[in-house]
Protein backbone atom coordinates (compact mmCIF):
# COMPACT_ATOMS: atom_id res chain seq x y z
CA UNK A 1 0.00 0.00 0.00
CA UNK A 2 1.25 3.42 -0.84
CA UNK A 3 0.79 5.90 1.98
CA UNK A 4 0.87 8.78 -0.48
CA UNK A 5 -2.44 7.78 -1.93
CA UNK A 6 -4.60 7.44 1.16
CA UNK A 7 -6.26 10.19 3.11
CA UNK A 8 -4.83 11.35 6.43
CA UNK A 9 -7.67 9.90 8.54
CA UNK A 10 -7.01 6.47 7.20
CA UNK A 11 -3.29 6.88 7.89
CA UNK A 12 -4.06 7.61 11.50
CA UNK A 13 -6.40 4.64 11.70
CA UNK A 14 -3.74 2.36 10.22
CA UNK A 15 -1.02 3.65 12.49
CA UNK A 16 -3.28 3.15 15.48
CA UNK A 17 -4.13 -0.41 14.45
CA UNK A 18 -0.45 -1.28 14.13
CA UNK A 19 0.30 0.32 17.47
CA UNK A 20 -2.44 -1.62 19.24
CA UNK A 21 -1.59 -4.84 17.37
CA UNK A 22 1.94 -4.66 18.76
CA UNK A 23 0.61 -5.32 22.26
CA UNK A 24 -0.27 -8.86 21.20
CA UNK A 25 3.42 -9.78 21.69
CA UNK A 26 4.12 -8.68 18.14
CA UNK A 27 7.06 -6.27 18.35
CA UNK A 28 7.59 -6.60 14.62
CA UNK A 29 4.33 -4.67 14.08
CA UNK A 30 5.85 -1.82 16.07
CA UNK A 31 8.98 -2.05 13.98
CA UNK A 32 6.90 -1.82 10.81
CA UNK A 33 4.91 1.04 12.30
CA UNK A 34 8.06 3.00 13.13
CA UNK A 35 9.66 2.48 9.74
CA UNK A 36 6.50 2.99 7.74
CA UNK A 37 5.15 6.09 9.47
CA UNK A 38 8.46 7.75 10.35
CA UNK A 39 8.28 10.12 7.40
CA UNK A 40 4.59 10.83 7.99
CA UNK A 41 5.22 11.66 11.61
CA UNK A 42 8.41 13.68 11.52
CA UNK A 43 9.29 14.76 7.99
CA UNK A 44 6.03 15.71 6.29
CA UNK A 45 4.66 19.25 6.76
CA UNK A 46 2.18 19.46 9.60
CA UNK A 47 -1.40 18.27 9.22
CA UNK A 48 -4.20 17.64 11.71
CA UNK A 49 -3.60 13.96 12.41
CA UNK A 50 0.18 14.24 12.49
CA UNK A 51 0.32 14.90 16.19
CA UNK A 52 -1.46 11.65 17.01
CA UNK A 53 0.54 9.67 14.46
CA UNK A 54 3.68 11.10 16.02
CA UNK A 55 2.58 9.88 19.45
CA UNK A 56 1.81 6.37 18.15
CA UNK A 57 5.12 6.13 16.33
CA UNK A 58 7.00 7.25 19.46
CA UNK A 59 5.21 4.76 21.66
CA UNK A 60 5.80 2.00 19.11
CA UNK A 61 9.50 2.86 19.06
CA UNK A 62 9.63 2.75 22.84
CA UNK A 63 7.89 -0.64 22.94
CA UNK A 64 10.22 -1.90 20.28
CA UNK A 65 13.25 -0.77 22.25
CA UNK A 66 12.01 -2.54 25.36
CA UNK A 67 11.50 -5.72 23.37
CA UNK A 68 14.94 -5.48 21.80
CA UNK A 69 16.54 -4.92 25.18
CA UNK A 70 14.71 -7.83 26.81
CA UNK A 71 15.35 -10.22 23.95
CA UNK A 72 19.01 -9.29 23.63
CA UNK A 73 19.56 -9.80 27.33
CA UNK A 74 17.78 -13.12 27.35
CA UNK A 75 19.52 -14.43 24.24
CA UNK A 76 22.90 -13.44 25.62
CA UNK A 77 22.21 -15.12 28.94
CA UNK A 78 20.82 -18.21 27.24
CA UNK A 79 23.70 -18.60 24.84
CA UNK A 80 26.20 -18.00 27.58
CA UNK A 81 24.78 -20.31 30.20
CA UNK A 82 22.83 -23.01 28.34
CA UNK A 83 25.60 -25.57 28.72
CA UNK A 84 26.01 -24.77 32.41
CA UNK A 85 22.31 -25.21 33.05
CA UNK A 86 22.55 -28.79 31.76
CA UNK A 87 19.16 -30.43 31.97
CA UNK A 88 17.22 -27.17 32.28
CA UNK A 89 19.13 -25.80 29.30
CA UNK A 90 18.08 -28.78 27.20
CA UNK A 91 14.43 -28.42 28.18
CA UNK A 92 14.53 -24.71 27.29
CA UNK A 93 15.92 -25.46 23.85
CA UNK A 94 13.93 -26.32 20.78
CA UNK A 95 16.88 -27.45 18.72
CA UNK A 96 20.21 -28.40 20.21
CA UNK A 97 23.16 -28.29 17.85
CA UNK A 98 24.46 -31.86 17.63
CA UNK A 99 27.92 -32.73 18.84
CA UNK A 100 28.20 -29.76 21.17
CA UNK A 101 27.51 -29.34 24.81
Amino acid sequence: MNLERIPNEEKLCLCRKYYLGGFAFLPFLWLVNVVWFFKEAFVKPAYTEQCQIKAYVKKSALGLLVWVAVLTTWITIYQQFRTEWGEVGDYLSFTIPIGTQ
Binding site: G86, E87, Y91, G99, T100
Partner: peptide
Amino acid sequence: SHMSAVIDTPTCMRRNHL
Protein backbone atom coordinates in the same frame (compact mmCIF):
# COMPACT_ATOMS: atom_id res chain seq x y z
CA SER B 1 34.09 -38.51 12.36
CA HIS B 2 31.85 -35.90 13.92
CA MET B 3 29.84 -37.40 16.77
CA SER B 4 26.30 -36.33 17.61
CA ALA B 5 26.24 -37.22 21.31
CA VAL B 6 28.14 -35.41 24.04
CA ILE B 7 28.82 -35.40 27.78
CA ASP B 8 27.23 -38.64 29.02
CA THR B 9 24.35 -41.07 28.62
CA PRO B 10 21.78 -39.12 30.72
CA THR B 11 22.36 -36.09 28.46
CA CYS B 12 22.16 -37.96 25.19
CA MET B 13 19.13 -40.02 26.21
CA ARG B 14 17.38 -36.83 27.36
CA ARG B 15 18.11 -35.21 24.01
CA ASN B 16 16.89 -38.33 22.19
CA HIS B 17 13.69 -38.07 24.15
CA LEU B 18 13.30 -34.36 23.42
